[in-house]
């Protein structure tokens, strides 16, 4: 381990022009893997926050009807809902409140109030209780004609499915990046072996152990990878922060900024370490394999 970053004294691999491109390739690979990982983890937390936000909240919509006292209908529906077990809070929105909600989209509140708007009741279900939403919805619409219970559930299911597919894609990208990295390293190590064949033979014949030779290759390639992996990782994190900033500006409830839980950060920090380890193991495997072919 002392010689982990040590030079390769005999092979002088440092002078190879052919493997200098390697850090750039590794940086790109680590960047992609890190982004995929960030995607994986932030979708995970997004799904969780959607679920908790959505599952506790229902909206009852009372359709606009000309010449009907909507306030009365609202009160009736609210009263009806309050009787249900498991329902924690019923909050009928006044026409002013509804108008304020729409103001950012439609403009002046005083004009919005003139529009034939449906009226809304926010319903919060108490945590841990199971309300039969379908039954509640049915009863409600018979009791108060024109009242519709929106459960958000089908919408959430679709979003979760989408999120899961994207997560699957991210995992596939990471796997692909890993495979491509191994292939690149195999090529680079093979090229190095061929270029230094004469020196390797001499070292071998004067009694160098396979490990002595393999170590020089391992250290060299591990160092190249580290040189590439760290910037790749840093750029990925900066990209994430930039996206967070942009998403934060949007202030859209749905597109939350990519936030990482602790596990996410740990996994992200593991990416360069894993790439360096993967490289070391691959290089060792290649070099030891071809040394075995010599007497």
């Amino acid at each position: 381990m002392i010689s982990f970053l040590g030079k390769s004294p005999e092979l002088q691999l440092e002078k190879d022009a052919s493997s200098r491109y390697l850090p750039i390739v590794i940086a790109a690979m680590v960047f992609l893997a890190s982004l995929a990982l960030i995607g994986l983890f932030s979708l995970h937390s997004a799904v969780q926050s959607w679920s908790s936000a959505v599952s506790g909240n229902l909206t009852v919509e009372i359709a606009y009807e000309d010449g009907v006292d909507l306030d009365k209908k609202m009160a009736k529906a609210a009263k009806f809902l309050k009787k249900f077990p498991g329902i924690e809070e019923v909050n009928p929105l006044s026409i002013d409140e509804a108008a304020r909600l729409l103001e950012p989209y439609l403009g002046r509140a005083d004009i919005i109030k003139q529009l034939p708007l449906p009226r809304l009741i926010e319903v919060t279900i108490s945590e841990g209780s199971s309300v039969d939403l379908l039954a509640t919805a049915k009863k409600l619409s018979t009791e108060v004609p024109g009242a519709i219970l929106n459960t958000h559930r089908p919408w959430l299911d679709k979003m979760i499915l989408l999120a899961r597919s994207v997560q699957f894609l991210a995992a596939a990208i990471m796997l692909l990046v890993g495979v491509v990295t191994v292939i690149i390293i195999v090529f680079a190590a093979r090229t190095g072996m061929v270029m230094h064949q004469a020196i390797i033979e001499v070292l071998h014949l004067i009694g160098a152990r396979d490990n002595y030779i393999a170590q020089q290759f391992q250290n060299y390639f591990a160092r190249l990878c580290l040189i590439g992996a760290i910037p790749g990782s840093v750029i990925a994190i900066l990209t994430m922060q930039l996206l967070s900033l942009l998403a934060g500006r949007l202030e859209a409830g749905l597109i939350s900024a990519p936030t990482l839980i602790l596990e996410g950060w740990i996994a992200l920090a593991m990416v360069p370490i894993l790439v360096v380890l993967l490289t070391t193991v691959t290089v060792r495997w290649i070099v030891m394999g071809s040394l075995k072919r010599m007497m």
Binding site: K15, V202, L205
Partner: peptide, 24 residues
């Protein structure tokens, strides 16, 4: 195979084509 290096260390070889490492 593992025993060969220690045997080789007991043998000194002058190669016909020298086989020196040019960068050293």
């Amino acid at each position: 195979r593992e025993d060969l290096p220690s045997f080789r260390r007991k043998i000194g070889v002058v190669f016909q084509e020298f086989r020196l490492l040019n960068h050293l």
